[in-house]
Amino acid sequence: MITHSSSRGLARLFVVAALLLPLGCSRASKTAITLAGSTSVEPFAERLAELYTRAHPDAEISVQGGGSSAGIRACQSRICAIGMSSRELTPEEKGLVEIPIAHDAIALIVNARNPVRVMTLEQARDVFAGRIRNWKELGGPNQRITPITREEGSGTRASFEEKVMVAGMPKDKDGKANPAAFAPDALVQDSNGSVREIVASDPAAIGYISSGLIDERVAAILLGGVAPTEATIRSGRYPVVRQFLFLTNGEATGTAKAFIEYVLSDSGQRTLTEEGLTRIK
């Protein structure tokens, strides 16, 4: 009936559970740092961290996504050593040290089976504003267009809006053009990768992503006839380019400083180029 052994069993269970929990509760060692922020920068930072820690086995660098804002917030409250942002800081967010690490071109992509390869900026604007709704109007097959945009607040979206959605729009008295609004029925995804996956599986879809993430299943549109290549990006001929930022709260020290130096060094920049970004230096 009433068994002592079963209550001892419960006790044993908890002891085992406690033992299985992390062996120490000490804060991680001093050489460990965290990077957090933009999901656009994340894959590149992961790669850099992987290579850096291979050369410096004593350093430990963990890379988090979460988005530019989460990264900025975490950096302000010193939860992470380095924040990553793919958008410019708002006036309230200024005060952090901003370190541009690379240029990133935003490429307009379509499914590889889609024959359309060239668009003017105005056509791209109309596609995303919902004014052009059929591929026929762009010289493609008679098929509806499924535009895919990014969520409000995304750095990629902000750059696209600033460079493409304002094309040919009337200017106000300050000389600033108001961007056309995105079509409300456009699909919204929250990462470059998921935009690419949808475009790769749907011949009617069109989206925009970091040009470094293009693979063989999708094709980049020549915007105004210009392809996003290193030469056109550096010369500024390709129209949609932004910077990736590292952020620190005050001057970086220790591992964070060494890692930033590595990223800006020739070999760090070369790695970024290999992964599809364009070097800043």
Binding site: S69, A70, T90, G153, S154
Partner: peptide
């Protein structure tokens, strides 16, 4: 919430 939280700030957040 989940889509936009990552990049939101100020009023948007």
């Amino acid at each position: 919430i989940a889509l936009e939280m990552g990049y939101a700030s100020g009023d948007h957040q």
